[in-house]
Amino acid sequence: MIALGIEGSANKVGVGIVREDGTILANPRHTYITPPGHGFLPKQTALHHQEHLVALVQAALKEAGVTPADISCIAYTKGPGMGGPLVTCAVVARMLSQLWRVPLVAVNHCVGHIEMGRAVTGARDPVVLYVSGGNTQVIAYAERRYRIFGETIDMAVGNCLDRFARVLHLSNDPSPGYNIEQLAKQGMRYIELPYVVKGMDVSFSGILSFVEEAAGRMLADGSATPADLCFSLQETLFAMLVEITERAMAHCGAPDVLIVGGVGCNMRLQEMMGVMVSERGARLYAIDERYCIDNGAMIAWPGLLALKHGQATPLSESTCTQRFRTDDVLVTWRD
């Protein structure tokens, strides 16, 4: 069996082709990059996806060396994500499924990240830290669902970083978070920022307001450099994430940690998590930007797993939704 997955819930659009044994045959992707100081809006992002999606499908088929006749199912992102971009991908998925007469499978984006991470690293039953532009969750598997143990009570960590990058007018190429990470390496001074952990939950919006205000003031009077601010912001945010992950590990008694999602490819976060994990005698599983950042294979793979367990999605139910919790998905393919 071979699955083709279409992902485009945010500013990345990707098509992945995955074989039954987990081999990724092709996984091309295109990113919508906005000018410095700007975020991406649903309408323009959807237009971007419309422009690139068909070409990506063709490129993926060519790279994988397969024909439409070899494809057993089309998996697409049902949600969560931005409405316009999600609909764009769903339309293409429906069209391909009818054209090639293969079943559709709707996939939860968050579950896609988790299953991709497990497949690539071989982690069996880890505590998962899922950190991206739209999500911040600490997840562990129990009784056929990915349960959310901790999460942000306001904005996502990637959103906090992206918005701070806009304040500093950093480039969005390849991503604002990457540029913050590079600039933070030159940071010399740690500026005290609020630190907000509530049990296994975190909150970032107050920190963002604080650092935005501090940036205006401190950059104007020269008491801090943009690098110092990036460094301090990363140190604070990531310490919070590592702390809640450790708390979840202590709570569930799990020995392994897997980091997924776009922020997961930040080397400083991986380094801090690595220190925590080694102190506990546990193992860290991390993946690089090919799989951390949204891609088609992360949708194709769980789609294939779901199909094998009889979870195809009829055309009449092939909708998408902006809000779709990780723990809403019944995980039929795990014990």
Binding site: S9, A10, G79, P80, G81, M82, H109, C110, H113, Y130, S132, G133, G134, N135, E151, T152, I153, D154, A156, G158, G261, G262, D294, Q322, R323, F324, R325, T326
Partner: peptide, 13 residues
């Protein structure tokens, strides 16, 4: 209110 906020959180990424 906080519960509702909790549900909405699943967004983009």
């Amino acid at each position: 209110e906080v519960r509702m906020r909790g549900r909405k959180r699943a967004m983009v990424g």
